[in-house]
């Protein structure tokens, strides 16, 4: 096999990365633009970041987003995990196919339809639209993602671990909490993070299900962009990008380090038998 990159590869790589990251890079650069006009470079400045922190509306929206994200991700994780356990562990029960189809429907359902149907439901039962309806809607669509992540971990779970616990005198209920849960915890945590991410950047479903006093950051950004892009928005987006990027980098470093440590320990164990 040849090492290094051929000319074709370099060109393909450059175009690929440019296609993916050039818009983001431009956004970051223009967030430091001194000019009021978004498309004209007027020198370096951090003034939009300063004005951002004086923009009550944006800060309020950010706070709503985080609260909805935390609440909906947590509830969705509990429900999604239960759904995954039911699907993997309960064997064949009547209605299993229907249940699994319904759990995964939001994955493929167009957001507009999910949003509209939720709106109709909330209107029908006379629930005032606001923070609660927003959170409920987010739980509904993010639960299935948690279910997918946890289910794939449960399928590869070695059942003999649970049998060993039972064999050693542990009741099934306790076994779930001391053996099963700690072992599938990484999958549950990544399910939670996925749900949280989906919640904080959802726009369409939020538009349908929110009410006065519960405007999320994506909604605020979208509505202000319709009146012309303000450089402040670039600053908000840059901060969001920074947060997400840091999270991803930390997560991958942690995974890599854990993997390295495990490999090292395994090599040491194999050598020193």
């Amino acid at each position: 096999m040849r090492k290094g990159l051929s000319g074709v590869n370099i060109v393909a790589l450059t175009f690929g990365f440019a296609f993916l990251y050039l818009p983001i890079l431009l956004l970051v650069i223009y967030s430091f633009n001194a000019s009021q006009l978004v498309t004209v470079w007027g020198g370096f400045s951090t003034r939009w970041y300063v004005s951002l922190f004086h923009n009550e509306q944006l800060l309020e929206a950010a706070w709503v987003t985080i609260r909805v994200g935390l609440l909906s991700a947590t509830v969705a994780t509990v429900l999604g995990t239960l759904a995954a356990i039911t699907l993997v562990r309960m064997g064949r029960f009547p209605g299993r196919t229907l249940f699994s189809g319904m759990v995964y429907a939001p994955l493929v359902m167009p957001e507009v339809i999910t949003g509209l149907s939720m709106l109709l439901l909330f209107v029908a039962i006379g629930l005032d639209r606001g923070f609660i309806t927003l959170a409920l809607a987010h739980i509904t669509f993010s639960m299935c993602f948690v279910a997918v992540v946890v289910q794939s971990r449960l399928i590869s779970f070695d059942r003999s671990l649970e049998e060993a616990a039972l064999d050693l005198g542990c009741t099934p209920f306790k076994t779930f909490f001391v053996i099963t849960l700690p072992i599938i915890l990484p999958a549950i945590v990544s399910g939670w993070m996925l749900a949280f991410t989906l919640s904080i950047d959802d726009l369409v479903i939020s538009q349908f299900t929110t009410g006065p006093g519960a405007t999320t950051l994506p909604m605020r950004i979208y509505s202000s962009v319709r009146l012309g892009v303000k450089p402040e928005i670039n600053a908000v987006c840059t901060i969001l990008i920074a947060i997400v990027t840091t999270g991803v980098i930390i997560a991958s470093i942690a995974t890599k380090r854990a993997e390295n440590e495990r490999m090292k320990a395994e090599r040491a164990a194999a050598a020193g038998r």
């Binding site: 060993a164 039972l166 009741t171």
Partner: peptide, 20 residues
């Protein structure tokens, strides 16, 4: 009699050691 009440213990083929 459920497995957790039997005075019998088993060593599993996969060892089934609790990894955590």
């Amino acid at each position: 009699v459920p497995p957790y009440r039997r005075p019998v213990n088993m060593m599993f083929q996969s060892y089934a050691l609790f990894p955590h």
